[in-house]
Design a protein around this nucleic acid. Structure first.
Lengths: 202, 202
DNA sequence: CTTCGTAGGCGTACGTTGTACTCTTACGAA
DNA sequence: TTCGTAAGAGTACAACGTACGCCTACGAAG
């Protein structure tokens, strides 16, 4: 068997992630990633069959850094919160990949591992049957929605500023936007999660 | 002033929505929409400046059918649930547009109106200040996450089937997937929302 | 009724994307 | 040393968004 591959998939994913971090998700093209690696464009297809698969590699790289072992904390709520916070931290480091997380959450081992971890905690907490299904999916919905909100426009971002401006038409929205300036992303995420967890009962 | 426009923006949006409903979001191109209207591709640019703006028109059309007047129900939780359910119904009729809703939620009047309605209910319920910001954003996160989950792969869809299959590696996930087959989208949405609302306190 | 300017509609063309196909060549096994 | 295989690169094409410029239908002005 001739010739070793000059790249590992991790290196490929790292290059793609570097492009995304530097120039945004729109810059993630086969050509730019190939340039990043000083390779021909078509050479990438020796490692991935698709542009989609390249995206999946990026997702896996981001989620690969997350430790999904269940922490040893007094309550199951704290365990769930800790796992979620770990995910948030990993994702927050690469805000531009959030849309990719959503697109590929079906086919991603990382996403599956996170689900398995959360479900395990909930099962030990006494959730079972359809109740657990509902609770798990609700938790996931919040997680996904919150990550996306943070990635696409944090509370203290320009979008919020714009909202604060047009106060005539949307008074509540404007007032909320003003107040939101003092809420950090991690406070929003943490307290919102605490709020959801309060509603979760086995 | 010469020559009337042969199209209203509503007709344009309707054509675009028809394309998306029929052939999926990927089929939403300037060319296909132009064909749908029996027009030249470039003619569309007399009505929109961008492909993005065309997408916004679609979002507005979908959300335009939603009644955001606050219903007269005993509790504020029921009011919120009712508004959310109306949104869900409107979106559910056009599952493929969910990604567009997320992309344009910043610049969409429809999204703003929904936010204003929900904030109004919460304000009357006694929420104020940062507490209201957190609660509102958490509710929105759930809403967005749940709509997306439903749009991309409902509980009884093929993705869930696939999960049920690989039981060795992810036992909890597989068991959950099996149970999830009996949970309808509206039950998942409604009960998940009820769960989040239980955690919301003014 | 005629004329005219404006704006609606369209055809062409260019840059960018993903990727199919083909060729060259480096390298491990023999 | 040789040789087959797989790595890597170049070329090319279809589909995309859209800049540009032309033609022309039509409301207003005479």
């Amino acid at each position: 068997m001739p010739r070793r591959r000059s790249l590992t998939t991790d290196q490929l994913a790292a290059a793609a992630l570097a492009v995304v971090d530097r120039d945004g998700l729109a810059a993630l093209t086969m050509r730019t990633v190939a340039q990043e690696l000083n390779m021909g464009t078509m050479s990438l297809y020796r490692y991935v069959s698709d542009r989609e698969q390249l995206e999946r590699l990026v997702v896996e790289l981001v989620l690969g850094g997350v430790d999904f072992t269940v922490p040893d904390l007094p309550t199951w709520q704290e365990c769930v919160a800790e796992i979620c916070e770990r995910i948030r931290l990993a994702v927050q480091a690469h805000p531009a990949v959030v849309p990719l997380l959503l697109l590929h959450r079906h086919a991603s081992p990382g996403v599956r591992r996170s689900g398995e971890a959360l479900l395990g905690i909930m099962a030990r907490a006494g959730f079972s049957g359809e109740r657990r299904v509902i609770a798990f999916r609700a938790l996931l919905a919040y997680l996904v929605g919150a990550l996306q909100a943070e990635g696409l426009g944090p509370l203290s971002g320009p979008g919020t500023e714009a909202l604060a401006a047009l106060g005539e038409q949307y008074p509540y929205l404007a007032e909320t936007a003003v107040t939101a300036r003092n809420v950090s992303p991690q406070r929003e995420f943490g307290e919102g999660l605490a709020l959801v967890l309060r509603g979760l009962t086995p």
